[in-house]
């Protein structure tokens, strides 16, 4: 009995820890947005320069990798779907498949995973190293609020980058899909775009935006939080970086899954199935 109680105690403590962690992350977002937007009377130019640097690193420098990934994904999606669809005589459905798979699901998720690998790790290790080198404390003694100078620009730059990269991913994947369709089935550009245009709905845009914005926020909040949690020594830096990656992957895939599930349930409700 006491063993069971101990186990229950352990599980309960983990659940409380989890909620405390989530609450701290929300609090960090709130404080950094507040200090960045409302109390930012000084140094907006300096903050904008940090935002630009973040967009350059995450967005611009991520373009080559995203391009390759998107072209490959678009090509693979179209090869698999068009083969099956032409067997069933449903070639006109190619747009629906691409919108469902690329725009709604794979685009935002793969972009987010790529950003975790490149920038989530970079932010966590950069901030961790800054803590060890007393750069964060130096900002404080200069009267510069780290939340507004360090965290806020990374959140803003990160979210902008993820949204733009996801959009770019979709664009390149759909173009890649077209080139593969053309090569395999001689598909006309007008037919391809008509099929895509018929498949697009406002809901797709919303889903894309919600997934991209919140994935970006999750990645950079976790990266910043883990980086800032370094206390004293450089051996903590790789530990927090690994933690930031693992937590980000769980959080982003979980979030994408929940949003897709809610969207699916919404469709079932609209169709009167449930």
């Amino acid at each position: 009995m006491s063993f069971l109680l101990r186990q229950a105690d352990h599980v309960g403590a983990r659940v409380f820890d989890f909620f405390a962690y989530v609450r701290t992350l929300f609090f960090m977002v709130y404080l950094s947005l507040r200090s960045g937007l409302l109390e930012q009377t000084q140094g907006m130019r300096q903050v904008v320069s940090v935002i630009s640097a973040q967009i350059y690193f995450t967005g611009w420098q991520g373009l080559p990798l995203i391009s390759i990934l998107a072209l490959a994904t678009g090509g693979i999606a179209i090869i698999q779907s068009s083969t099956q669809l032409s067997l069933l005589g449903g070639s006109s459905m190619v747009g629906n498949i691409l919108v469902l798979v690329i725009v709604r699901e794979v685009g935002p998720l793969l972009t987010a995973l790529m950003v975790i690998a490149r920038s989530g790790t970079a932010v966590a290790s950069e901030l961790g190293t800054m803590r060890v080198n007393r750069e964060i404390e130096a900002l404080e003694i200069m009267g510069i609020q780290p939340l507004s100078y360090i965290v806020f620009p990374r959140l803003v730059g990160g979210v902008i980058s993820v949204v733009c990269l996801s959009f770019y991913f979709n664009l390149v994947a759909l173009l890649g899909g077209f080139f593969v369709s053309k090569a395999l089935h001689g598909m006309q550009l007008s037919f391809y775009f008509e099929s895509l245009a018929n498949a697009f709905a406002v809901e797709d845009v919303w889903l894309f935006l919600v997934k991209s914005v919140f994935s970006g926020l999750i990645i950079f909040v976790l990266g910043c939080y883990q980086g800032m949690s370094v206390q004293h020594s450089s051996h903590e830096v790789p530990q927090v970086t690994a933690r930031a990656v693992v937590h980000s992957i769980f959080a982003v895939t979980g979030f994408n899954l929940i949003v897709s599930l809610l969207s699916y349930l919404n469709q079932l409700v609209r169709l009167g199935i449930i």
């Binding site: 080198n133 007393r134 750069e135 130096a138 900002l139 003694i141």
Partner: peptide
Amino acid sequence: TFQSGGLLS
């Protein structure tokens, strides 16, 4: 002023 460190790298 710090004993060491403190510059943004």
